[in-house]
């Protein structure tokens, strides 16, 4: 366990060395937040004050929480593992006395922990100043929200890791990556809340882990769901966590047997 803790810590430190990148990222998240918020707000005004149970203020809160969580949750993922397979550096990862998935997971949690403040806070501050935020007043949603965020970070990690692991079988994962990004962006509730979907798409989305990757923590943090409902949603997150973990471990197990380490 200590190895994974050290890995998480080191990853936190690694990311903290790239402060300029963090500032640039926070700026971008805030600007895109302004664009998304103004689009949603004008849609809500046209619709006559509310869409799918979201008032103007609630919709703005949904946008700003999404923009704030974007980086910590790792919604854009990274292709580190796939590029290490390509370069053959995967040999180094595999000759370490740690579990491959767990070591990458620990490092992603360290990254997320670093991203919370520099990437998460600026969009929230901009949101509070520009549109105002509708946040709950009791501590419950924040506590459960924290658990939900950790689960969502892990789910996003495992989703992208599975796509990366395809590089054990195919040389180029870009196609799979693009497909995954499109599907995930839509079904996670990043573009619009999943409850705005037509019934059939909403049912489909709920049969996938994607809403658990963003919509769930955003809804819990915004206080849209009551205690029991929030707990059930976190339960669903953990269920998906178990499912993805099994898939990923199977992929590592069978993939590393047929992996050809590139290079001399």
């Amino acid at each position: 366990m200590r190895a994974y803790w050290e890995l998480a810590k080191s990853s936190f430190r690694r990311h903290s060395t790239y402060r300029t990148a963090a500032v640039a990222g926070a700026f971008t998240n805030s600007v895109f937040g302004l664009i998304r918020a103004s689009l949603l707000l004008s849609a809500i005004t046209t619709a006559g004050g509310a869409i799918g149970g979201y008032s103007a203020m609630e919709a703005a809160t949904y946008v700003w929480l999404g923009q704030a969580l974007l980086a910590p949750l790792g919604l854009f993922g990274n292709t580190e593992l796939a590029s290490r397979v390509k370069s053959g550096d995967i040999a180094v990862d595999l000759s370490r006395s740690v579990n491959l998935t767990a070591s990458y997971w620990a490092q992603d949690l360290g990254r997320a922990a670093f991203d919370v403040l520099p990437r998460g806070l600026p969009p929230l501050i901009v949101g509070a100043l520009v549109t105002g935020l509708a946040m709950p007043g009791s501590p419950g949603p924040y506590l459960l929200g924290f658990v939900s965020i950790v689960a969502a970070v892990s789910l996003n990690f495992l989703g992208f890791f599975a796509i990366n692991l395809l590089s054990f079988w195919v040389l180029e994962i870009r196609g799979f990556w693009m497909l995954y990004m499109v599907v995930m962006n839509l079904l996670s509730g990043f573009l619009v809340p999943v409850t705005w979907f037509p019934g059939w798409l909403l049912d489909f989305a709920r049969a996938t882990p994607f809403p658990s990757m963003l919509q769930t923590p955003v809804d819990i943090l915004a206080g849209r769901t009551d205690g029991g409902e929030s707990l059930a949603m976190v339960g669903v997150q953990f269920l998906w966590l178990a499912v993805l973990l099994v898939i990923v471990q199977m992929m590592v197990r069978f993939g590393s047997r047929r992996l050809v380490v590139q290079g001399g």
Binding site: R14, T17, G88, D89, A91, V92, S95, R96, G263, G264
Partner: peptide
């Protein structure tokens, strides 16, 4: 194990 052309150290630390 030492792979002369690869690194087991953490590149940015």
């Amino acid at each position: 194990v030492v792979f002369g052309q690869r690194s087991q150290l953490w590149w940015d630390l």
